[in-house]
Amino acid sequence: MDKRFYKKLVFVTFAFAVLLTAAKVIADSTISTESTLNNETQISREYQVKAAFVYNFMKFTEWPKDKKTDETETKSKAKAMTIGVIGKYPFGKAFDPILTKTVGERKILIKRFVGVSQYRDMSGNSPKYKLDYSQKYADDMKKCHVMYVCSSEDEFVKDITSMLEGSGVLTVGEGEKFIEKGGMITFVMKKEGVEAKKLRFEVNLDNVKKAGISISSKLLKLAKRIIKDEQKK
C-alpha cells in the first residue's frame, strides 16, 4: 500500500478516537448534571486500595450482638453487612468487586449517603440543616456496619460521629485528625519519606470500645498509631 494510504489511515483512526472520547466527555458531563448522588466518580488507585483495606478491616472486626441492621432489605440480603459511604463519593467502581465477596457467610452491600456539606448546600444553608439532616438520614446510617466518611465531610466529622454514637458503626475516614474527632480508623499517607505514597492506618481504640466494637489484635498490630486511653502508641 502506498504512503498516502497509511497517512489517511492514521489520521482517520486518530480523529475517530479523539471524537469518540470528546463525545463521551460531553455526553456524560451533560448527564452527570442531572443527579448528584447517581454520579459515578473518578476512581483513583488510592481509592481502590482503600476499598480493599475496608474489606480487610471487616474481616478483623466483631460488632455488638444487638447491632441494628437494615430489616427492609430482601430476605436474601437480610444477612448482608452494609458499608455506608457519606459525602462526595471518590470510589467510583472501586467497591464493585466487594459485591461478590463475603465476610464469613455474609454478603456486603454498599450504601451511599449525601454528605452534611452537600445537604447544607442543597438546603440553601438553612440554619436547621444539621437537625434536618440527622432526622432524615441518621436512622439509616446507624444500621450500617461500616461508615466511610469522605474528606468532603472533614468539617462535620464531630457531628457525624456524634450522630452514630452507640450504634455500633465502625467509622473509617481520612487524615490524622479524623480519629481525634470521634472517628475510629483513619487512613494516612506520607507525602515524603520511606513510607511515601503507601497507605497506612491509625486507630482510636477508645472510640472503638465505646461503640461496643471489637477489633482483632492482628489488625491493631499493623496500625501506625493507636490512641488508647488518650495515650499515643
Binding site: D28, S29, E40, Q42, G92, K93, D96
Partner: peptide
C-alpha cells in the same frame, strides 16, 4: 474524565 460505565 471517568465515565458512567467505569471507563476513563
Amino acid at each position: 474524565h471517568e465515565f458512567d460505565d467505569g471507563s476513563s
